[in-house]
């Protein structure tokens, strides 16, 4: 096979100037669309100095928004981890009728506009919704309160973990599990000792993406929030409110927190790919 010899590799190489041009274009694009806006967020946030920046972050409404965002993520992400692992396990390791339907359904939140995802919950749980009057009678408030925000966020983020794990688990096959069972392990033991360690890095990867989206989601939570200051405003919604109040420093200060979250996610993601690339390879191929 001459195709693998070093000689033929030279013939497919591009001239240096083409390579340089392509790299320049890529870097320019990256700088213009990603680094520039990112820098803008931080310069705007720090325009009146570090004091004003920190003041904007410890202001009670901002703190409430940060707390609420954490609360929503802390509920939504673990629930989606459980759901994602269960769904991925069922789909990757078993055969059953309706499997492809389940796969399609998992992808649904990716294809539906977030505004619709929010509106469904208003239609279901709103005062005139399907279950609204019943809930109201029993003093349960879902939309325009924290439960609605959690539900909308869960809906938006539920594909992340499952989508990450399914290809990974499919690639790994069922051999190790079968071996464990043959050796007398129970179902739970097999899952905990064999399946889970195999998928842990993929799982962590999914959790990262899921969390980033849960904290950053705007559209769906905007619909179900009711925009009550200090109560149902998550960080992205709070950014919009501050911006609309001409409070640009504070708006960008809160936005910079979200940007930092994105950067941390990115770094963690790169670290995972770098350290555990082989284990994630099955996933990576799909992206």
């Amino acid at each position: 096979m001459s195709g693998h010899s070093p000689k033929s590799r030279v013939t497919v190489a591009e001239p240096v100037w083409v390579k340089a041009l392509i790299m320049l274009a890529a870097l320019g694009f990256l700088g213009f669309f990603i680094l520039l806006p990112l820098a803008a967020v931080f310069t705007e946030a720090l325009r009146r100095g570090l004091g004003a920046y920190l003041e904007a972050l410890v202001e009670p409404d901002a703190l409430a928004a940060i707390r609420l965002t954490l609360l929503v993520a802390v509920i939504a992400v673990p629930v989606n981890v459980v759901f994602g692992v269960a769904a991925a396990w069922a789909i990757a390791k078993h055969k059953f009728p309706g499997k492809s339907l389940l796969l399609t359904l998992i992808d649904l939140p990716f294809s539906v506009s977030p505004v619709i995802s929010g509106l469904v919950y208003v239609l279901l749980f709103g005062a005139h919704g399907l279950m609204g009057p019943f809930l109201r009678e029993h003093g349960v408030q879902i939309v325009f309160a924290v439960p609605g925000l959690v539900l909308a966020t869960m809906f938006i983020t539920f594909p992340f973990v499952a989508r990450e794990l399914i290809p990974l688990m499919q690639a790994q096959g069922v051999d190790e599990e079968e071996a464990a069972i043959t050796l007398g392990a129970s179902g739970w033991q097999t899952f905990r000792r064999v399946t889970l360690p195999n998928i842990r890095w993929g799982l962590l990867y999914g959790v990262l993406l899921c969390n980033a989206r849960a904290m950053g989601e705007f559209g769906a939570v905007s619909v179900v929030s009711g925009h009550i200051r200090g109560e149902t405003n998550t960080m992205p919604l709070h950014v919009e409110i501050l911006y609309n109040e001409y409070n640009f420093v504070a708006a960008f200060a809160v936005a910079s927190l979200l940007a930092i979250l994105a950067l941390v996610t990115l770094v963690a993601k790169s670290l995972l790919e770098w350290r555990h690339g082989a284990e994630l390879a099955a996933t990576a191929r799909r992206h």
């Binding site: 208003v122 749980f125 709103g126 005062a127 005139h128 919704g129 609204g132 109201r136 408030q141 939309v143 325009f144 309160a145 009711g226 925009h227 009550i228 200051r229 200090g230 109560e231 409110i241 609309n244």
Partner: peptide, 20 residues
């Protein structure tokens, strides 16, 4: 006192839908 602001028609809609 908590406050919620938005387009007036949209706010009325939210109250009708159950904003308390």
């Amino acid at each position: 006192i908590k406050a919620s602001h938005g387009g007036s028609g949209k706010q009325a809609r939210s109250v009708i839908d159950g904003l308390d």
